[in-house]
Design a protein around this nucleic acid. Sequence first.
DNA 1: TTGACGTATTCCCATATAGGAATATATTGA
DNA 2: TCAATATATTCCTATATGGGAATACGTCAA
Lengths: 110, 110
Amino acid sequence: MARAATTSDAFNAVAEPRRRDILNYLAMQERSVSEIVDAMETEQPSVSKHLKVLKDVGLVKARREGRQMLYRVNAVAIRPLHEWTSTFERLWKHQLLRVKERAEAKNELQ
Amino acid sequence: MARAATTSDAFNAVAEPRRRDILNYLAMQERSVSEIVDAMETEQPSVSKHLKVLKDVGLVKARREGRQMLYRVNAVAIRPLHEWTSTFERLWKHQLLRVKERAEAKNELQ
DNA sequence: TTGACGTATTCCCATATAGGAATATATTGA
DNA sequence: TCAATATATTCCTATATGGGAATACGTCAA
């Protein structure tokens, strides 16, 4: 078996750095493909392919306006990722607290 | 160019569902490889390979105890994912609010 | 030292990219 | 209808899987 398709879910889709770049850019506001191409350092076909992956997993929505296609983030699709990472929040806070405690204990010895 | 290596960063590492399963399981407590194998429905070599990927990107730490290797989550490595998703939180809250408003407006018409 | 247990690694293969190049499709204005 | 603009798709290739099977490695008990 090979690796899961990039379109299998949002986790796979955002694994690609350029797709995260696109989402970051669209977080500001809706943009046309050519605006995205100008903002990224990527060829237009490549951007269109990334947009297709993002659209397939529901991370972006698109609408046509004349000759242009305007893409926007569908933020609720990012929520599952946020919630999954949140289940570890307690753990890293605990971890960071212990680091801090060790640092303070070390200071008191001086 | 092919897809980025699963070991290139935490985003790529957690794209694989089985690796998220392993992290979820380890969130409870430190576990040996055979405990993980029993908990998952996966062959031992497969689990070991997933653990290697997780270890390479720093998502887990391991220590030997006799013949066993005990793995635990390194939660701080998940934090960057949490922070990236957080940048979209404002957007999906706004989105959900509008959904709610539309539903209420619809109710008032009845 | 040897055998057994627990884990890691290697080899194999089917599969899915991501980017580059070329081309197709859709829409508009003249 | 035709040319120009904006985007999408197809074809190609090098590369990196994930799982199965087999095997190697590390540690302990006798």
